[in-house]
Every structure is written in C-alpha cells, then in structure tokens.
Amino acid sequence: MQPGWFSKPVVVSVGVAGATRHLSNTQQAIELLTTHWRDAGSLKHQSALRACRQATSGDVPPDIAREALIEAAREAHILVE
C-alpha cells in the first residue's frame, strides 16, 4: 500500500488546543480519521475513511479521497478554509 498524494494539502484543526495539521496524503488522513476524529462514525467520516483506504490501494484517485476528507472535516467543524 502506497500513500496517495493529494494535489493540495487539506488543512484541519485538531485537539483541544486546535493544532493545525496539513494532510498531504491518504496515509496521514487515515491516521487522523482513525485516531483523532471528533465525529467518528458519521456517514461522511465513514465515507472519507473508505475513500482514503481505496486510494491507498490504488482503486480510486487520491483527489476523490481528498474531497471526501474535506466533506468529513467540514461536517466535524475542523476544516481550515
């Protein structure tokens, strides 16, 4: 499995202090989605996790996963726009 690199990083604010993270690939996104996600289990969270795993396997383009990640981050109110 290879990380799928995004065309542009996704910037999110995580943790109690709101630390900013720049997610550049699907591996980084999977790590965040599985360990530090506020609304884990929501439909958009599940969709983003599935898309990132598929992109890591080469089944979908990384930017499809990026868009799903953006939607999940927006829903969780952690997307930095």
Rank of each mutant, 00 (worst) to 15 (best):
V11D: 10
V11K: 15
V11L: 13
V11I: 13
V12K: 03
V12D: 07
V14K: 04
V14W: 04
G15F: 10
G15L: 06
A17F: 11
A17Y: 13
G18F: 05
G18R: 00
A19N: 13
T20K: 14
R21M: 09
R21H: 14
H22V: 08
H22L: 14
L23C: 11
L23E: 02
L23I: 15
L23A: 11
N25E: 09
T26K: 06
T26G: 09
Q27K: 09
Q27C: 00
Q28W: 04
Q28L: 06
Q28E: 15
A29V: 04
A29M: 10
I30G: 04
I30F: 04
I30K: 03
E31W: 01
E31S: 12
L32K: 02
L32E: 07
L32C: 02
L32V: 12
L33D: 10
T34M: 13
T34W: 01
T35Q: 14
H36Q: 11
H36E: 14
W37Q: 09
W37A: 01
R38C: 00
R38L: 09
R38N: 05
D39L: 11
D39G: 00
A40D: 01
S42Y: 09
S42M: 05
L43Y: 12
L43W: 13
K44F: 07
K44E: 14
K44M: 13
H45F: 00
S47W: 10
S47H: 12
S47C: 07
A48L: 08
A48P: 03
L49S: 05
R50D: 13
A51C: 09
C52I: 00
C52H: 02
C52S: 08
R53F: 01
Q54D: 15
A55C: 08
A55N: 04
A55W: 03
T56P: 00
T56M: 03
T56E: 13
T56I: 00
S57F: 03
S57H: 11
S57G: 14
D59E: 15
V60Q: 07
V60A: 02
V60K: 08
P61Q: 13
P61F: 12
P62L: 06
D63K: 10
D63A: 04
D63Y: 02
A65M: 07
A65L: 11
A65H: 02
A65V: 10
A65P: 07
E67V: 13
E67T: 14
A68R: 15
L69H: 04
L69W: 06
A72L: 09
A72M: 07
A72N: 06
A73N: 05
R74T: 14
